[in-house]
Protein backbone atom coordinates (compact mmCIF):
# COMPACT_ATOMS: atom_id res chain seq x y z
CA UNK A 1 0.00 0.00 0.00
CA UNK A 2 2.77 2.40 0.92
CA UNK A 3 4.65 1.65 -2.30
CA UNK A 4 1.58 2.40 -4.43
CA UNK A 5 1.06 5.71 -2.61
CA UNK A 6 4.69 6.66 -3.25
CA UNK A 7 4.33 5.76 -6.92
CA UNK A 8 1.06 7.78 -7.19
CA UNK A 9 2.79 10.78 -5.61
CA UNK A 10 5.82 10.64 -7.94
CA UNK A 11 3.50 10.21 -10.98
CA UNK A 12 1.51 13.23 -9.85
CA UNK A 13 4.73 15.23 -9.41
CA UNK A 14 5.94 14.16 -12.83
CA UNK A 15 2.65 15.22 -14.41
CA UNK A 16 2.79 18.46 -12.44
CA UNK A 17 6.21 19.20 -13.96
CA UNK A 18 5.42 17.87 -17.45
CA UNK A 19 1.97 19.32 -18.16
CA UNK A 20 2.94 23.02 -17.89
CA UNK A 21 6.05 22.33 -19.94
CA UNK A 22 4.07 20.56 -22.67
CA UNK A 23 1.44 23.31 -22.56
CA UNK A 24 4.07 26.04 -22.92
CA UNK A 25 5.80 24.11 -25.71
CA UNK A 26 2.49 23.64 -27.52
CA UNK A 27 1.72 27.37 -27.39
CA UNK A 28 5.15 28.32 -28.71
CA UNK A 29 5.03 25.61 -31.39
CA UNK A 30 1.56 26.79 -32.44
CA UNK A 31 2.88 30.35 -32.84
CA UNK A 32 5.82 29.12 -34.93
CA UNK A 33 3.45 26.93 -36.97
CA UNK A 34 1.12 29.88 -37.58
CA UNK A 35 4.04 32.02 -38.81
CA UNK A 36 5.12 29.24 -41.17
CA UNK A 37 1.56 28.83 -42.44
CA UNK A 38 1.29 32.57 -43.07
CA UNK A 39 4.62 32.55 -44.92
CA UNK A 40 3.46 29.55 -46.98
CA UNK A 41 0.22 31.27 -47.98
CA UNK A 42 2.12 34.34 -49.21
CA UNK A 43 4.84 32.50 -51.12
CA UNK A 44 2.86 29.54 -52.53
CA UNK A 45 0.72 31.73 -54.76
CA UNK A 46 3.87 33.05 -56.50
CA UNK A 47 5.95 29.88 -56.60
CA UNK A 48 3.33 27.19 -57.26
CA UNK A 49 3.45 27.63 -61.05
CA UNK A 50 7.18 28.16 -61.45
CA UNK A 51 8.50 25.81 -58.79
CA UNK A 52 6.08 22.94 -58.08
CA UNK A 53 8.57 21.08 -55.87
CA UNK A 54 8.38 24.05 -53.48
CA UNK A 55 5.33 22.65 -51.66
CA UNK A 56 6.97 19.38 -50.72
CA UNK A 57 10.23 21.05 -49.72
CA UNK A 58 8.46 23.66 -47.61
CA UNK A 59 6.33 20.99 -45.92
CA UNK A 60 9.47 19.09 -44.89
CA UNK A 61 11.05 22.29 -43.56
CA UNK A 62 7.87 23.32 -41.72
CA UNK A 63 7.30 19.95 -40.04
CA UNK A 64 10.96 19.70 -39.09
CA UNK A 65 10.91 23.18 -37.57
CA UNK A 66 7.69 22.47 -35.67
CA UNK A 67 9.03 19.16 -34.36
CA UNK A 68 12.33 20.57 -33.14
CA UNK A 69 10.67 23.64 -31.63
CA UNK A 70 8.31 21.43 -29.61
CA UNK A 71 11.04 18.95 -28.64
CA UNK A 72 13.47 21.69 -27.51
CA UNK A 73 10.81 23.40 -25.40
CA UNK A 74 9.54 20.19 -23.83
CA UNK A 75 13.06 19.04 -22.89
CA UNK A 76 14.02 22.40 -21.40
CA UNK A 77 16.38 22.10 -18.41
CA UNK A 78 17.45 18.62 -19.49
CA UNK A 79 20.45 17.40 -21.47
CA UNK A 80 18.08 16.26 -24.23
CA UNK A 81 17.38 19.88 -25.09
CA UNK A 82 20.94 20.26 -26.38
CA UNK A 83 20.71 16.95 -28.24
CA UNK A 84 17.72 18.35 -30.10
CA UNK A 85 19.53 21.67 -30.73
CA UNK A 86 22.41 19.73 -32.30
CA UNK A 87 19.94 17.53 -34.17
CA UNK A 88 18.15 20.60 -35.54
CA UNK A 89 21.40 22.07 -36.85
CA UNK A 90 22.25 18.75 -38.53
CA UNK A 91 18.75 18.52 -40.02
CA UNK A 92 19.13 22.05 -41.44
CA UNK A 93 22.47 21.16 -43.05
CA UNK A 94 21.01 18.10 -44.76
CA UNK A 95 17.85 19.95 -45.75
CA UNK A 96 19.63 23.00 -47.20
CA UNK A 97 22.01 20.83 -49.25
CA UNK A 98 19.08 18.75 -50.56
CA UNK A 99 16.70 21.66 -51.18
CA UNK A 100 19.30 23.68 -53.07
CA UNK A 101 20.51 20.64 -55.02
CA UNK A 102 24.02 21.15 -53.72
CA UNK A 103 23.93 24.87 -54.50
CA UNK A 104 22.75 24.59 -58.11
CA UNK A 105 19.13 25.48 -58.76
CA UNK A 106 17.50 25.32 -62.17
CA UNK A 107 14.21 26.68 -63.42
CA UNK A 108 12.46 26.54 -66.77
CA UNK A 109 10.21 29.49 -67.53
CA UNK A 110 8.63 30.12 -70.91
CA UNK A 111 11.43 29.52 -73.42
CA UNK A 112 14.19 30.30 -70.93
CA UNK A 113 16.27 28.04 -68.76
CA UNK A 114 17.61 29.69 -65.60
CA UNK A 115 20.44 28.44 -63.44
CA UNK A 116 21.31 29.79 -60.01
CA UNK A 117 24.69 28.91 -58.54
CA UNK A 118 24.83 29.62 -54.81
CA UNK A 119 27.64 27.37 -53.62
CA UNK A 120 29.45 30.08 -51.60
CA UNK A 121 26.15 30.97 -49.92
CA UNK A 122 25.46 27.28 -49.26
CA UNK A 123 28.92 26.92 -47.69
CA UNK A 124 28.14 29.88 -45.43
CA UNK A 125 24.84 28.30 -44.34
CA UNK A 126 26.57 24.99 -43.60
CA UNK A 127 29.23 26.86 -41.59
CA UNK A 128 26.54 28.63 -39.56
CA UNK A 129 24.87 25.34 -38.71
CA UNK A 130 28.18 23.71 -37.84
CA UNK A 131 28.79 26.60 -35.43
CA UNK A 132 25.28 26.01 -34.03
CA UNK A 133 26.17 22.33 -33.49
CA UNK A 134 29.41 23.33 -31.75
CA UNK A 135 27.50 25.78 -29.56
CA UNK A 136 25.01 23.03 -28.69
CA UNK A 137 27.86 20.73 -27.65
CA UNK A 138 29.41 23.43 -25.45
CA UNK A 139 26.03 24.19 -23.89
CA UNK A 140 25.51 20.48 -23.17
CA UNK A 141 28.93 20.27 -21.53
CA UNK A 142 28.23 23.37 -19.46
CA UNK A 143 24.80 22.01 -18.44
CA UNK A 144 26.31 18.66 -17.45
CA UNK A 145 29.04 20.29 -15.36
CA UNK A 146 26.51 22.58 -13.62
CA UNK A 147 24.18 19.67 -12.89
CA UNK A 148 27.08 17.61 -11.48
CA UNK A 149 28.11 20.53 -9.24
CA UNK A 150 24.54 20.74 -7.85
Amino acid sequence: MGKVEVEDTSLKELLKKLVPRVFKATIITAVVGACLLFFWLIISAALADWFPEYQMLFAVFAWGTVFFTFAIRVTDNTIFKYCFIIGRAFFLIIYIVYATNGGLLTLDFMNFHFTLEIMPLLSLMILVNLLAMARGVLQAIEFTSETTRE
Partner: peptide, 17 residues
Protein backbone atom coordinates in the same frame (compact mmCIF):
# COMPACT_ATOMS: atom_id res chain seq x y z
CA UNK B 1 24.85 33.74 -70.73
CA UNK B 2 26.41 33.37 -67.31
CA UNK B 3 27.53 36.03 -64.85
CA UNK B 4 28.27 36.48 -61.17
CA UNK B 5 26.76 39.08 -58.91
CA UNK B 6 28.86 40.26 -55.97
CA UNK B 7 31.44 37.64 -57.06
CA UNK B 8 29.37 35.10 -55.12
CA UNK B 9 26.06 34.25 -56.75
CA UNK B 10 26.20 32.89 -60.28
CA UNK B 11 23.26 33.26 -62.65
CA UNK B 12 22.88 31.50 -65.97
CA UNK B 13 20.23 32.11 -68.62
CA UNK B 14 19.84 30.14 -71.80
CA UNK B 15 17.34 30.05 -74.59
CA UNK B 16 16.88 28.50 -78.01
CA UNK B 17 15.68 30.21 -81.12
Amino acid sequence: AFFRVAYVIGIGISTSM
